[in-house]
Design a binder for these strands. Sequence first.
DNA 1: CGGATTTGACCCGCGC
DNA 2: GCGCGGGTCAAATCCG
Length: 316
Amino acid sequence: MDCSSYINTSLDLNITPYRVQEKVPKKEVENNFFSLGMTNFSVKDETIDELEEELKRVTAENKKLVEMLSVVCENYNALRSHLMEYMSRNPEKELSTISKKRKSESSNNNNNTNSNLIGVNNGNSESSSTDEESCKKPREEEVIKAKISRAYVRTDASDTGLIMKDGYHWRKYGQKVTRDNPCPRAYFKCSFAPSCPVKKKVQRSVDDQSMLVATYEGEHNHPQPAPMESTSGSTRSVSLSSVPSSASPSSTAPKVVTLGLTNSKSSKDFKNNEPRKDSPKAAKNLVEQMATSLTTDPNFRAALVAAISGRLMHNN
DNA sequence: CGGATTTGACCCGCGC
DNA sequence: GCGCGGGTCAAATCCG
């Protein structure tokens, strides 16, 4: 995982749209604030000056935070490469910790659960690395394995079912209690199209019983059916941990909210996607949506905590 | 009544 | 060759 790109695209808390308008006459700045629904602001020049100063200060702070996050991520990547190096030097130790079973599918599920939960995208790399070791015969299976993706769904603790609504129609054809997990694993086939080869396995995580782990195998050869009401109505939130070659059902992809407004490219796209003649209500909704996205994104919060704690430790 | 789900039996690959 | 375990099949059952 290279989290620097993540920072650039998702973590930029920025305010550049306003910075861009620094040369804009103050009257227009006022209008922009009005258009954002902040009608409580005074329109006096002093207030605007104060706001601009505050804006600069926050911008500088944001810049520092981004730099700190970059450092943290660099350190993380360095540590990770060290770990990889160490593990490659001591393969026997690594192998001893893994299940004896050569068939890596189930063990991968569990060994990678934690890393996936913190946003490590290992779907493709994992299958390529382990398959090279375990499967010496190049067969069709490898092609299928290359299209394996995983989704994690948090459910209510009381929810004992393994039904996971993701927009496709699935027919359950089996259930099995596996050795490494007391919770039964359910097997589903895509029933929307008779010829669709996609299968999925759903099992509760060993570590977190409220977490459903769905493994998708194959690629849908049909368009996604009409959206189901339960997809959005459910309290479950689906997040794909790996995104291999369009194999993952699009409906399960997490809602992506790009926050990189200081990023020139993304902010440009942002502007292109949003009509300039926003109504105040729409602008307000947009701001609220951005704020909600920031505050509810666990990755963002984790990164922020890491950055702040790192800063504090650095100062101490 | 038809489609979906359940569940025991069976198949197959792998390790010993 | 045998046992184990994951994956699949298919008859029985459930449910709208």
